[in-house]
Design a binder for these strands. Sequence first.
RNA 1: GCCUCCGUAGCUCAGGGGAUAGAGCGCCGGUUUCCGGUACCGAAGGUCGCAGGUUCGAAUCCUGCCGGGGGCACCA
Length: 550
Amino acid sequence: MAIEDTRRAVQRVVDQLCEQGILTATVEVSLERPKSRDHGDYATNVALVAAKYSTIPPRELGNLIAERLSLDPAFTEVTVAGPGFVNIKLSARAQGEIAQRAVELGSAYGRNDTLTGKSFNIEFISANPTGPLHLGHTRWAAVGDALARVLAAAGADVTTEFYINDRGVQMDKFGASVMAASHGDSVPEDGYHGGYILDLAAAIVRLHPEFAQLSLSDQLVAYREAAYALQLQQQKDVLGIFRTHFDVWYSERRLYESGAVERAQSRLEEQGHVYSSDGALWLRTTTFGDDKDRVLIKENGERTYFAADTAYYVDKRMRGCDTAIYLLGADHHGYVNRLRAVAACAGDDMDENIEVLIGQLVKITRGGVEVKLSKRSGQIVTLEELVEEVGVDAARYTLARYPVDTPLVVDLEEIARKANDNPVFYVQYAHARISSVLRNARDLGVNWREAEFQPELLNSDQENELLGVLEKFPAVIATAAELREPHRVARYLEELATAYHRFYDACRVLPRSDEELSESHIARLWVCAAAQQTLSNGLDLLGVSAPEKM
RNA sequence: GCCUCCGUAGCUCAGGGGAUAGAGCGCCGGUUUCCGGUACCGAAGGUCGCAGGUUCGAAUCCUGCCGGGGGCACCA
């Protein structure tokens, strides 16, 4: 019996009390899984909350609720504790059915419809195509991709998007740097200095020897465009290795070429938030909480980067998403208010249609010594290097298991050296261990799926605990999606792995050599399969593999 | 100065108003006749930055302060 069924049962009792005039108003029942097992499978504070609407003190109210609930055969024990908590113990049968449900739903177990009918556009990373992706982008690759999967698992329609900043002076500096390198000259002072510039230059000289014949100004363009194409492809390749998929790669140039910038501007003008001043064209973002108004078109006639931002937002919405989610680094937090104001200026609801998630930066240490990241000096740790050093699974899991608003310190040596102590391996190990047990069952000719499953046999503390954890999975996904916090999935998996290991330690799954196969073994195999499925589903949400052997 | 995030065990961090504040690492001590010991059990370790407030109840919500990170462009 799932938590929601139980909650409804309690709700019915509370509603009844209201109808009978014992409560002057009914209250929404919230049910939780208590931290301590002594407090039952489920607990509710409803008596404490409802006491406001009654002359009866909380504890007595609790007794009243408990009395009525205990009539339900699904509950073996309903008690009142402390100031008035009602603690509920499920029957082994009601609890055990969870295993069967998880197995039968398979990869769909955990999916729910809390966000069904809502569409999201999630934009993350959005790096300049002027260099390799580095660690600053990596947290977003892991978190953004996991968030997209979590939202989809909660029923939402999700589009992931990467915005390519391929216009402006940075691109020209990039092109000039590569051209200089290809001529054997030193790179301009304000250019890009990483070793990758030399590699790009060498590749282009090999692919396009004819560039040398062009005039210098034509060469600059040719080198810029060739380097852009190579660098963008390199970013795509690395993200592919990192299992981070983007549905849409949206180029800033396309934004201009498609007329989206003009369309957005006229949209904003229609809404009446655009004005001229000092020879420039402004958007009145202060109406919606920004510190100052922002310039769309500069005095010299050029559009600002901000103009492109507004166009991009309007374009996303016109392409059909309900909510545009932006994942930005803490160094961009000053953009939050203006972006929200843009939405409002475009006539949208800035609490509904736009969400900006700010993530704190990742500090990297290697053997306890901080690794300074600086693109200018070329001292960078790239996403590619990280993957080579620790692997995709460890990198993704490590970056996705923390809430994004806490600064993160990751020690590269520690992740690499102590791979076995890493939480990701703990979780993966649980999956591999179960896989092994199920393999052994197959080798013994045990066909547990065809045998009768008797959930009431699962009555030990460890089985009970494990089933309880399994049951929470859909709720964990729903919460992670609702709060945009995919790290909750990782934390949940660690809890599940622990519950499984304890179960495994206490409960023999397969018959020993001198034992006959019993219904109890069958029931435990169902639990194993349910745990395996749930671990696999959860790891998949994080983009981490679920190995059958390690 | 203004905005924002953070402050929880020696270290790295979980804890979306509830009961005795948790995990991993590190440290100390245990557990195995056969299913993966990369596991499990136990011990030690805390003024949850400080002070008020709201509440039956605050690590959690509010206010102020202290300390730290980041940000405050007609840059891209």
